[in-house]
Computed example of a mutant assay.
Amino acid sequence: MNKLPTVLITGASSGIGATYAERFARRGHDLVLVARDETRLNALAARLHEDCGVAVNVLQADLTQPADLATLETRLRDDESIGILINNAGMAQSGGFVQQSPESIENLIALNTTAPTRLAAAVAARFARSGSGAIVNIGSVVGLAPEFGMSIYGATKAFVLFLSQGLHLELSPQGVYVQAVLPAATRTEIWERAGIDVNTLPEVMEVGELVDAALVGFDRRELVTIPPLHVAERWDALEGARQGLLGDIRQAHAAERYQLRA
């Protein structure tokens, strides 16, 4: 019997990452769990090994730190047992744009965009050579909604969606599956870390429901999975409008409305 691929999950000590770990362990996958909090990772690893009988390896890492990121890249390039990458680690934005410090901006972009991009790049060539593998990038519906007022966070999540769509076009011919998952408000610790009381939000999805829905999309090989979107045709219409817009771009000349009249 073919052995199931090992799943590497970033941000795995709690919330969405820990729930992905539990769900994949139940499916019989060995795991590599990555996060800053080694104590919580070890506790989760011990529980999943005991409950599910899978091998669970723990890697303590802060993905905003170049040395830690480089170590993880090496693991992804060299460990041929890893066949699924869950790019989940991320942080929320606390306060408006003018309240951000240079350090907070740098950390947010490093964790939400640089880390998933570099990790995907580290594993993509190996997946393409083998003709298999999956990359799951956790984005957010905020990346579709500048109206929500989280400009930097939303921009990082818009990047994650674009990256996922681009990687699908480049890698799917080589047999590599890429999925973007776009949650809305989900009950995780990301809110507390950003200084936001999640209980003040009008609607919040439980993390188990979010991950279970994302895995339905994963099993169906959806390219973009939006668990809180109840009318799927809305996404289809958005994609159709985008394609129509691209079809109306003719780059040899400026559009008539921009041309000066004599």
Rank of each mutant, 00 (worst) to 15 (best):
A158S: 15
V160L: 13
Q99I: 01
A61C: 10
L69C: 04
A125Q: 13
A124E: 07
D79P: 14
A55C: 11
F97A: 05
A158Y: 14
G131R: 04
L119E: 00
T64G: 10
D68E: 06
A120G: 15
I138E: 00
V141C: 09
L76Y: 06
A110Y: 08
Q100F: 09
A55T: 14
N88T: 06
A67Y: 13
I84S: 08
E80V: 12
P66W: 15
G154V: 02
T117N: 01
F127I: 07
V56K: 05
I105A: 01
G149R: 06
I138S: 03
A70L: 13
A122Y: 06
T64Y: 04
L111C: 02
D78W: 05
G143M: 01
F148P: 04
V141E: 11
D68P: 08
V58N: 08
V136N: 14
M150T: 09
R118M: 08
M91Q: 13
A61N: 14
S81P: 06
L144Q: 10
G154H: 03
G90Q: 01
G139P: 04
A155C: 01
A122P: 04
T71I: 01
S101W: 11
L119D: 05
S81G: 04
A70P: 14
A61V: 04
V56T: 06
P66K: 10
G96Y: 02
T117D: 02
F97V: 08
R129A: 11
I105S: 08
I152K: 09
A121N: 13
A125T: 11
P146Y: 13
D78F: 05
S104D: 09
M91I: 14
D78P: 07
D68M: 02
Q60N: 15
N137S: 09
N137P: 06
T156E: 00
A67C: 11
L72F: 10
P102D: 05
A55F: 12
N112A: 00
A92I: 15
A134N: 15
V123C: 09
V160H: 13
A61P: 13
N87T: 12
M150N: 12
D78M: 01
A110H: 02
A89V: 11
N137K: 07
A92K: 15
A89I: 03
V160T: 15
S132T: 11
A92M: 15
